[in-house]
Design a protein around this nucleic acid. Structure first.
Length: 110
DNA sequence: TCCTTGACGGAGA
DNA sequence: ATCTCCGCCAAGG
């Protein structure tokens, strides 16, 4: 009973998170909290961040379409990935000015 | 097993 | 609009 430390459990959650992210259309963005909720894990926004952090460099998952609830990129400005995220978004027509993205225009509404 | 760390979020001040 | 302070949840030391 109440055996919580089941390993396959965490794997299942990771997979559900991937499954939601892969559905974000090009040219749209979603927040960490939004992804968590859609994955059936309300309140687990930080977990989404942890999962993305562990993605391999060559992953085809559109991780760059995930930003924070304030419409900003949650990556250190000094990190290589930060610049990459902006470039990828620009390629899809998402405008990023002063580290700000208009959720009004680009938020994914499934 | 306990403690700390995060690509978070939201309520206050 | 900014900044702090907590709550959340899993991972790693």
């Amino acid at each position: 009973m109440n055996n919580k430390n089941n390993n396959s459990d965490a794997l299942d959650k990771r997979q559900r998170i991937w499954q939601v992210i892969v559905q974000i259309p090009a040219g749209k963005v979603a927040s960490y909290g939004q992804i968590a909720s859609l994955a059936g894990l309300p309140g687990a926004a930080r977990l989404v961040g942890n999962v993305l952090k562990k993605l391999p460099e060559d992953s085809r998952l559109p991780w760059y379409r995930v930003i924070n609830s304030q419409g900003k990129i949650s990556l250190p400005v000094s990190s290589p990935s930060y610049k990459r995220q902006i470039e990828q978004l620009n390629d899809e027509g998402v405008i990023v000015l002063h580290n700000r993205i208009s959720l009004k225009k680009y938020r994914w509404n499934p």
